[in-house]
Design a protein around this nucleic acid. Structure first.
Lengths: 190, 190, 190, 190
DNA sequence: AATGAATGAGTCTTCATTCAT
DNA sequence: AATGAATGAAGACTCATTCAT
């Protein structure tokens, strides 16, 4: 039997998998968050069984569809954690993460959700929280953040801000305004 | 033809309407936010047609079910708007509103939603925003809030905070912690 | 709300219910034991939802479809229990019950199954076992049956005989031959 | 082209075949009687195509999986046919065969089924019936069995008894009790 | 006014089987 | 020989909504 890593699929299987993911991303981009499996199969031009073969659950499909965005977010978090100025790094990360979620309802859903279907996502999530944790520790030492705010608080609060933005026009000014509320809100009082 | 105000229903119709609302509130209190019409009819012991007669859409039912909570929130907002200390009033209102939403998924959904099905809810919503607007104006004059934060921002941000709290354990400490972030976040820098 | 007894349905509902049962019985008579709900709906000319409304599970449908046969069997058992000659009554009952099951795969399945979906069937089943129990008690006193054979043994053994008959040509001679094996097998040694 | 007897397979093919059978037996032992081909392939660590290559139908797989048990049963039948006391031999055989089936749902299914997918099973079946036939003939002469009971009747009746036992607790006492009914039932009246 | 029967679209999910690689 | 990707038929079940009674 051949190995079953994503990178190591038969050419046609890889093509189908990619098409399914593509369709899923299109639906997400169009604001459709329910991702009906049969609709996806139809739009991707594959059998429903093929969708299930590649993605045993809808959550697995969703997580796979947003994997790329998640990796970008993680990279940004790791870069922020290494920033000389942790306060600046945190601000940069939050602005980045919030915009990323605003541009990808799927990623927002995965970040919001308490559980992961794929081990890969769990790992990304854990890595993300670890990186944010390191960042916060340094920010705390620098007096750039309230001591009681932890990595998961940052995750949940930024998801909340994303939803607050989405509830309105979502224009640039609003994004900045709401992100500022979060940034000021987690800064220590002076 | 008889008039069709809520207060002016045939006795049995009023009873049915009340039972439907009661059941809807029970489901909401149990965390069931989908409110299937069939289920509601069955639990209320009325025909599904009766549910539709009183509440032409699920949204209308939802809004009617949370009307009471909405009125309490409005009262609190009006009281806050009349507070001698607008900053204190604002804080009181936010703490109140966030806890109210945390205890009532239905009210949270209605506050979050951009549209109202019932004229009554629209009016409540408008009144709420007006009261918060007055409160903010006074708070602004007192330097207790950033000038760029408007009444609808307060609504959306507090809904976001509610969702952030819900994404975790939702214990008292967390509620306070997240509410503080919002309060500090909308206060002017010093 | 109207009561929901079977006898007290709206005329059209009763008609649909009857059609569904009719179709189910036809399928069973044709040897189809799986009773696909959608097939039944199609054949009965009703919507799938109508089938589910009347019969929430396939087992409920099955039990309802064979209710009549079950009642006949119970009547026969009660009559046998009242027979002057319990040995003759038992023989009559077994010959009757085995032929009844042979003519109705549905009834055979319900008798074989350890659980009932409908309260009605549970009651019939309990009544049947009670009647057979009385019959056996009298047969035991008359020395017409081994003392260690109970009512549920009779049920299970006759189901087994039915399956043995079905595994072959199922002609009259075989039915008698196999039934005789059961009858002789539960009679005391002499 | 290489010959295609079971004994004459390329080493890896033989290994695969054995693993598939092993998995099938495990499933049967766990009470799973449906043997989904996909599941078997997965558990055996082979491709689904490989399963089909070795076993073109599920029935063929099933028969192959229980072949060993079938051979044991045949040996017992042949030994019984050679017993000095045909009555004792028959009783021994029935007690053995019923317990064998109770411990192997697969074998029970194959014995019950009217048709064989594999020539090998057909032969075993024919041999079994021949041996039982010889046994019955001698038993008949010894007056140990009713004359109208044939070899296939014994097969079908014992399958029926197995199902009757399975419908209940299946404890030792019940096995004996039900087997006794069969034994007494096929003995001539005295 | 109320009832609730009926409808059927929509979704999920499993699995036998084929066939290109 | 083996693989396993793909297919799609089949069936289960839910629920919003309409409308005859």
């Amino acid at each position: 039997m051949r190995p079953t890593t994503v990178d190591d699929l038969r050419a046609d299987a890889a093509r189908n998998r990619a098409r399914v993911l593509e369709v899923a991303r299109e639906l997400l981009a169009a604001g459709e968050a329910t991702l009906p499996m049969n609709t996806i199969a139809r739009l991707a031009g594959v059998g429903i069984g093929t969708v299930y073969r590649h993605f045993p659950t809808r959550q697995a499909l969703l997580e796979s569809a947003v994997m790329g965005g998640f990796e970008q977010l993680l990279a940004e978090a790791q870069s922020a954690a290494a920033d000389d100025d942790p306060g600046a790094g945190l601000e940069r990360l939050l602005r980045y993460g919030i915009r990323l979620q605003l541009g990808d309802v799927g990623l927002a859903a995965v970040l919001r959700s308490p559980e992961c279907a794929c081990a890969r996502t769990s790992r990304l999530r854990a890595d993300l929280l670890k990186a944010v944790g390191r960042l916060l520790e340094r920010a705390r030492e620098a007096g750039a953040i309230r001591p009681e705010i932890g990595a998961d608080d940052v995750r949940r609060l930024s998801c909340g801000i994303v939803q607050a933005v989405r509830a309105g026009s979502s224009d640039e000014a609003e994004i900045d305004r709401y992100t500022n509320v979060l940034l000021c809100g987690i800064r220590p009082d002076r």
